[in-house]
Write a protein that binds this DNA or RNA. Structure first.
Lengths: 248, 248
DNA sequence: CGAATAGTGTCTGTTAGACAATATCGA
DNA sequence: TCGATATTGTCTAACAGACACTATTCG
């Protein structure tokens, strides 16, 4: 129950921090900024910021979208955004108690990043490297949780298509799975399993096939349109496409 | 990035609200309190409260556990607790901006509830009825999300066993599935699928079988012990036990 | 014994995965 | 033509679900 706010209840800052993932050059990469200010000045950190600066945000999701734009220069159209988890422990931020709502953002993102005002730079880093580096605050834990969420959701939603621009080929989607899961998948079996999740693109401007330069041109697909409600934009994979066991 | 806390960042209250579920008399029930104070005085609401009253809480999870004890009288031993989602929209609480971290709590809970200081009463309500009633704040949305989380997790974890005391029979677990999913399941197929997830109880005080009064006595099981880390206390069901399609 | 519940066996249709075979392109 | 990639076909083992059957208790 959300009861009375008396003085004995401490005031918190609330931030939205973003785990923005993209597949670049065959690697799963995360957008990180280099902190300009203390604490953790000079450290890599997830992009993010406080809710409602200047009273702009009416929901947590709006904060996340705004920070995505401001901190990385990414325009949030066509970006899949979902809340992952909320983090706080006493003293997590040495200046003030700050609760962080973490978000996972996936998109067909190609260009370089543009740093926001409170960051020295913003860039893509392979997730593997980012997890080995010391990140600011508890951002390594947040990154791990968000990547695991993304890996899990590949199993039962069409979220992999968020990584590639439409229209796409089944091989495009397969490369996303292989990159995010770190495995190799059989092209034939993958085709049979995943193609029905998507919608064939018929004719149109660029035709309905795309040649990769070599080999037989591939048919083009797009995601099925779902209800317009936020969060209802993923098509389920039924039955789920289970992750192969991996030794590591 | 969690950047500087300047005056333009508003102060939030942070609460942990609990969706405490139990199976009682063959129905899925949720613990609700009747609010004593405005806003929403007299309305049913989820139990919960502000983080860190008197500086007791060092983590969000501790707040959730403390509120579980204070607001419902439930002792948190043997209760499964997991974070679901965080809720805020401007004006959600008319007095002050309040961010609510919602938690799902499941346990083998039998007794009646004991209301905390800021509630007129605390009681169990069938989830179905609770969703039809007007709840305080956005607690109906939180309840829906948490129940869906619980239903989903029955598919791929042994979380159903959280609802029953150890040792339990496979039929006990089956009744949890049937109640939470609102379906009937084939006892034979269920046995084959679920029994290997658990550990047989050998001999001991009460023997290794339990008679239900009629019929052949059932073998007793307990959950497999997993790593001691929080959140690692669920055994996966592999491959998952998929929810049957339901017309509604 | 009969009713009730626990647990196993059996059959069938579906699916995943290995892998072969075919299709269609560029060079 | 060859090499590469896309797509379909085939086979097999595993699995889910329907349902029959056996096991064990109480009354």
């Amino acid at each position: 129950m959300t009861s009375d706010a008396r003085p004995e209840y401490p005031a918190f800052g609330v931030t939205a921090d973003l785990v923005v993932l993209a597949v670049r050059e065959g690697r799963l990469c995360v957008a990180l900024v280099r902190r300009r200010d203390e604490p953790y000045a000079g450290r890599l950190a997830l992009p993010g910021g406080f809710v409602s600066r200047h009273g702009l945000d009416d929901t947590l999701e709006e904060t996340a979208l705004r920070e995505l734009r401001e901190e990385t220069g990414i325009e949030p159209d066509e970006v899949h955004l979902e809340q992952v988890k909320t983090y706080w422990r006493r003293g997590r931020d040495p200046r003030q108690e700050v609760v962080t709502v973490a978000w996972l953002a996936l998109g067909p993102i190609h260009g370089d990043l543009r740093a926001g005002s409170d960051a020295a730079s913003a860039d893509w880093y392979p997730v593997e490297d980012a997890l080995a580096a010391p990140l600011a605050f508890d951002h390594d834990e947040i990154l791990r949780d968000a990547v695991e969420r993304a890996r899990a959701k590949l199993e039962y939603t069409d979220i992999a298509a968020s990584f590639v621009p439409e229209p796409f080929t089944i091989a495009d989607v397969r490369r996303v799975y292989e990159t995010v899961w770190g495995v190799e998948l059989d092209p034939g079996n993958f085709q049979r399993k995943i193609a029905p999740v998507f919608e064939r693109v018929e004719g149109g401007d660029g035709g309905d096939v795309r040649s990769a330069g070599r080999g037989r041109p591939a048919a083009l697909y797009r995601r099925r349109r779902r209800g317009s409600r936020a969060g209802a934009d993923l098509t389920p994979i039924e039955p789920p496409f289970r992750r192969p066991e991996t030794g590591g």
